[in-house]
Design a protein around this nucleic acid. Structure first.
Length: 283
DNA sequence: TTAGCATGCGTAC
DNA sequence: TACGCCTGCTAAT
């Protein structure tokens, strides 16, 4: 269940574990069997992520993976694979296996198609080659709520529902603010914050967005316990008190996805602040 | 044991 | 805007 940090972490781990090694490639489930047979025994050239797309390169072609909502790509040392009927793809060097289940898609593509995937992605805060001006160009001419544009993969590649909710909170932005009303300096701060938050998430393997002063130890509260693991301000905290002001976190559905925000810290019409909540400068 | 939901996205209406 | 898809975790039965 991935936002961009998951696919970037996977790309790194695949490369570190398997690069230049001839791999066993199989599709026990069968839906990728033909391509798997073609790649079986080939060495891994490398793996790369662009937004939420994962590109696993071999000489004959690239495996293009999108995990969607429920896909998982997990490393294991268990042989043979458990539940093979759900195993779309297994890459293995005999010691470690990488198991792909439930992806939205997993296809073998050519170098030209691969280039098209990369070119059609919006700028990705996790990539050093990202050009935030492309995201700003989308933001400044959109009348849609900024919260909607933040999830547009052609504007902010790799950003998902958690990073969206949290970055809006950290900059005190009304989620329904029309994107074109977002001040340029707030956009700059949001982009820089995404680079920071998503980069940390790649390193740590979880999403933490809460400032030191709002951490459990500092506030004397219980740590967040759910499968997402990280400390966050508003994501999936509907009805619970805001760590900054105590107001119950609000939720609604927007374009088919849950949206979470604090009505007091992010009041209607709020155009946001460059300062991050809890950064100290605004205290 | 089952139902519902989830960090996503494409297609059809 | 509504729905389908793919799996696994959690809450409700």
């Amino acid at each position: 269940m991935p936002e961009g940090h998951v696919t970037h972490r996977l790309a790194r781990h695949l490369t570190d574990t398997f690069k230049a090694e001839p791999l066993r490639v199989a599709s026990p489930q069968g839906r990728f069997a033909e391509a798997a047979a073609l790649l079986d025994g080939e060495p891994l050239v490398g793996a790369e992520s662009v937004g939420k797309h994962l590109l696993v390169d071999f000489v004959p072609g690239t495996v293009w993976i999108h995990l969607g909502l429920i896909g998982k790509f997990q490393f294991t040392h268990v042989f043979p694979a458990p539940n093979p009927s759900t195993l779309r793809l297994r890459l293995s060097d005999g010691v470690t296996a990488a198991d792909l289940r439930g992806p939205q898609w997993c296809r073998l593509i050519t170098a030209a198609e691969r280039a098209e995937v990369v070119a059609s992605s919006g700028p990705d805060p996790l990539r050093p080659d990202a050009d935030p001006a492309r995201a700003w160009a989308k933001v400044r001419r959109s009348r849609k709520p900024f919260a909607v544009v933040l999830m547009d993969q052609a504007a902010f590649a790799g950003v998902g529902n958690i990073f969206r909710a949290e970055v809006l909170f950290r900059h005190r932005i009304d989620p329904l603010l029309p994107a074109q009303d977002l001040p340029a300096e707030v956009f700059d701060a949001v982009w820089a914050d995404l680079v920071l938050l998503m980069g940390e998430a790649v390193e740590v393997g979880r999403i933490d967005t809460v400032a030191e002063e709002h951490m459990p130890q500092a506030m004397g509260r219980d740590p967040r316990v759910d499968r997402h693991g990280g400390e966050v301000y508003v994501y999936r905290r509907a009805g619970l008190p805001c760590y900054v002001c105590g107001t119950p976190v609000a939720t609604t559905e927007l374009a088919g996805r849950h949206l979470y925000w604090c009505p007091t810290c992010q009041p209607s019409g709020a155009r946001g602040e460059a300062e991050i909540v809890g950064s100290g400068a605004n205290r």
